[in-house]
């Protein structure tokens, strides 16, 4: 199949269309990702190394974010936690998105009993608060990173399925989909090559805010002791550890919390910028 390759000039034209929020979002996220990747070179400390002599130190020149009750450097732990949280955020967002978009788009294209059953399943799943459902599943499976994945995979696809189905219902009425059918293309080809690229935009935009929510979810689960097991550095777990020391050592909870906020802002800006960029494509379509 022929593929569209972006010539340098096309890439430049693409970049020229980026809005400030898209620019800032991409820049901030790149900064965070790089900080996580290069963590060993950015800090002299080991994220797991305990040093009781240096416990509960306030932020200073040696420990930028201070230290926790076990004397671990919080800046170091916050940097290493980028890896944990972004990796978890990525899988808990994009695996459900892949499942949801495929199921939803197929349901929207074919209709019939598959569509009817799928929508009832989604309605049922969405009738429960998301967090409660996850906690119930984790209570059955037991805590741990792997089980968080399983729990989120089981529930997270529903929103994407609903979004993709709604878009697909609009798209499947368009004549180019009918044309593909009259040309005898198989359903899988129509779905993957013709329809999906045109229905996936809203899911991509939604995934940006979903990503943030998923990081918060995992942080929240860690806070409740159902998430990433100690001593792995993870923002939510760190915030939880600090809760007993709020009076004498505010930094233990606050500064990792700010890392969550920073990531959230980056993804929100990215989502906002993408909305405009992808929306723009539709506007200039005529």
């Amino acid at each position: 199949m022929t593929t569209t390759t972006l010539a340098p000039s096309a890439l430049r034209a693409e970049v020229a269309r980026w809005s400030p929020s898209l620019w800032i979002g991409i820049g901030l996220l790149a900064f965070i990702v790089l900080a996580g990747l290069f963590a060993p070179w950015l800090t002299p400390y080991d994220p797991l190394r305990q040093d009781y002599g240096a416990a509960l130190r306030a932020p200073d020149a040696a420990h930028w974010f201070g230290t926790d009750s076990l004397g671990r450097d919080l800046f170091t732990r916050s940097l290493y936690a980028i890896r944990t949280d972004l990796v978890i955020g990525f899988w808990t967002t994009y695996v459900p998105m892949l499942i949801g978009v495929l199921l939803g788009a197929y349901a929207g294209l074919k209709g019939g009993w598959f569509d009817a059953v799928l929508m009832r399943v989604i309605d049922t799943a969405l009738a429960f608060p998301f967090l409660v459902l996850i906690i119930v599943i984790l209570a059955i499976l037991g805590p741990g990173t792997q089980n968080i994945y399983i729990a989120v995979f089981l529930v997270g696809w529903t929103m994407y399925a609903r979004l993709a189905r709604a878009e697909m219902l609009v798209e499947s009425g368009k004549d180019y989909i009918l044309a593909a059918r009259t040309l005898g293309f198989p359903t899988a080809r129509i779905l993957l090559r013709h329809a999906l690229p045109n229905v996936i935009n809203s899911s991509i935009v939604f995934s940006m805010s979903d990503f943030v929510l998923n990081i918060l979810l995992v942080s929240g689960l860690s806070f409740l002791g159902l998430g990433v097991p100690a001593p792995t550095p993870e923002w939510g777990a760190m915030v939880a550890e600090g809760k007993d020391f709020m009076q004498q050592a505010w930094w233990i909870s606050t500064l990792p919390g700010l890392m969550i906020v920073l990531t959230g802002v980056a993804l929100a800006l990215l989502g906002d910028g993408l909305t405009h960029r992808l929306g723009d494509r539709h506007v200039t379509g005529h």
Binding site: T2, T4, D175, Y176, L178, T182, L183, R193, H194, G285
Partner: peptide, 30 residues
């Protein structure tokens, strides 16, 4: 042997495929 031409020139072509891609796909598939 039987083909169709549609009314709306705006929605009858996949907005993401160039003319060559649209026609090339048909020629290769069949």
């Amino acid at each position: 042997e039987m083909q169709m031409v549609f009314q709306d020139p705006y929605s009858s072509l996949n907005p993401r495929l160039t003319v060559t891609q649209t026609l090339g796909e048909v020629l290769r598939f069949h």
